[in-house]
Amino acid sequence: MASSTPQAWRFPDLTTAIVVVILAVMPFLVPTTLASQVAIFATATLSVTLLLGSVGLLSFGQGLYLGFGAYLTGLLLRDAGLGLLPTLVLATTAGTVLAGLLGILMVRRQGVYFVMLTLAFAQMGYFAMLSLKDITGGENGLTDLPRTMSLAGLPIGSPLSFYLLTAGAFLLAFLAVQRLNASPFGSVLTAIRENEGRSEAMGYDVKRYKIAAVAIAGGIAGLAGGLHAAFLGFVPPNDIELEISQRILVMAIIGGVGSPAGALVGSVFYTLVSEALSELWARWMALIALLLIAIVLYLPGGLWSIGRRLAERFGGRSADA
């Protein structure tokens, strides 16, 4: 949801510092592989946060680009014998290109119709994956990815090295989104979110800005997919299913889309809650659903906005998003 008060984006700011601190302390507080999972899903969620928070576009289909990046990564690592770094760059590029191309079509529609298009394309991606089972492995997923990889000469295999990779990737994407929001380009996106018609009347090519935002978000999702494939050592078909699009949307809403930091907060919360509760009570999703309802009704800024409100109350001045 678009927040009703336009805010000035700044870069770098207190939020940047908070995110760096969270990333730095996380491996000391939770198991390293769990921390990697948090970082991967935070990256995926960032693509939803960027679209919904900065431009006001709700996507039910970011899993399409995540899945595309994951399958491409799997194929490149396994069959093309490509290194991890060029593979991740290609996965990001592929996500950007696919989202950019579909974006050209999708931005022709607004509101509900835009949401429906994201849904339709995501479903097409899933069924295309099932149809091409010779390449994708169909319902079995893509298996037998190499377990040892290196990134610019450094071996990537231990849990800690994976965390450094995934956290680094998230930080990079996060800084890029923050920088983008603070740029003149970001100001136009904010203007489109607040009032699309007025932005158009002011002479901005609204469609082109939206396509760019959709493409960038697709690239971030593609990167997250690539990381997920490398992290798991295989590509589960779930990576391109509607369910993953919904999961990262839920993370984005819970964390809050008013700031890119909300993506990290949402992923931390969701991943840790699911880890802690799934042993105790298999139906923990019911609690997530209740929380989601409460957030939509009473806390549109998500969990991140609680911190900001507290900071405003006690800090005296506003900590910028």
């Binding site: 949801m1 709700l58 949401v115 999703m285």
Partner: peptide, 22 residues
Amino acid sequence: TYRMPHEAQILITFAIALLMQE
């Protein structure tokens, strides 16, 4: 949610669906 944007309506009904499924 009637006075909220479409996105809020979509999200809340999605959450309700999730809750009922669980």
